[in-house]
Design a binder for these strands. Sequence first.
DNA 1: CTAGATTGTCTAGCAGTGCTAGCATCAACT
DNA 2: AGTTGATGCTAGCACTGCTAGACAATCTAG
Lengths: 181, 181
Amino acid sequence: MPAEQRKAKARHERGRLIVAAARELAEAEGWEAVTTRKLADKVEYSQPVLYSHFKNMDAIAAAVALEGIEELGGLLSKATGLRGLADTYLSYAADHPAVYQAMFVRPTDLTFATGDIPPALRAAFASLRAGVTPFAKDDAETLTELFWSSLHGLATLQAGSRLRPDHQHHRVNHLIALITG
Amino acid sequence: MPAEQRKAKARHERGRLIVAAARELAEAEGWEAVTTRKLADKVEYSQPVLYSHFKNMDAIAAAVALEGIEELGGLLSKATGLRGLADTYLSYAADHPAVYQAMFVRPTDLTFATGDIPPALRAAFASLRAGVTPFAKDDAETLTELFWSSLHGLATLQAGSRLRPDHQHHRVNHLIALITG
DNA sequence: CTAGATTGTCTAGCAGTGCTAGCATCAACT
DNA sequence: AGTTGATGCTAGCACTGCTAGACAATCTAG
């Protein structure tokens, strides 16, 4: 019954449209501006339609977050060396601040630490791990967590205008110098 | 005219009461649970009273943030060595997650980077700087920013359960080892 | 081809949010 | 004692996330 399939596909397509709309709106005006009504307006349906695709508003943000994780994971897998990883990570965070917030800043239902970690996130972490492993004396896992934490701190404090704006490159240099020894 | 003074003092006292109530509520149930009505209930006044003390809800959160910055600044000024600084910082963030969020995570009107940095924050930063300076080859300011960023990343990712919960001490060890060389 | 069931979507509404206008009430001063 | 000013309140607006129930369109079966 291809009619069924076509319908299911159209439905899935609409789900993706909602996520894309949420992402655009968040990126353009910040997450606090992403409301069900604006979102419904943008996809040209009524609000209840959103709830036939997602449990609630947070689930939509979570979908955006997952999309971002997959993108960032893909980019990191292509990056080489600590500098490549760091630059890729920080550029992504700077270029897509709203998506980055959805991924790692905003409170989210997705508790990544309790077992059900998205594969894409695991892959991203593995990329970081591969980058630091050559410089890890013993505990590569811990060093990876530290590397990630440093990047995350740099990304978020920078985004909040709490670090000198023009010195991100210097900070990255220092970080890499510390790790490579 | 002591009546005036007494009144002004009582007023100021009530302002502090509001901030304390907001802090308690945020610490107990998270910032999303801090509403003007609950807050007004807690201080046993009506909502409009809040607005005679603070411009809006965000200003209340900012007051909590400032309080936290002063507390953390005080603690850091007493801490000695990189380990002392790191432990103090991370303990504070872990023990007062809501206050820490108000300080450095939640979106806030206070744009710290554009000139009007609270003195307490400047002092806190100075404490960190004093801690890393002995190990800075040249650029202590950049290293301080990096140290802070790492601590901030560790604090927030830990708070979001995105790092192995029982390994914070290991991560700190690694960080200190990297900086001290 | 029609009757019934099912699916999909929308309108309307609830409870709760931040915030404010305007009315009381109470204190102070002449 | 009467006027004036400050102070807190009630009531309400425009908005939020979310949902129940009505309506229409589509598919199924006789």
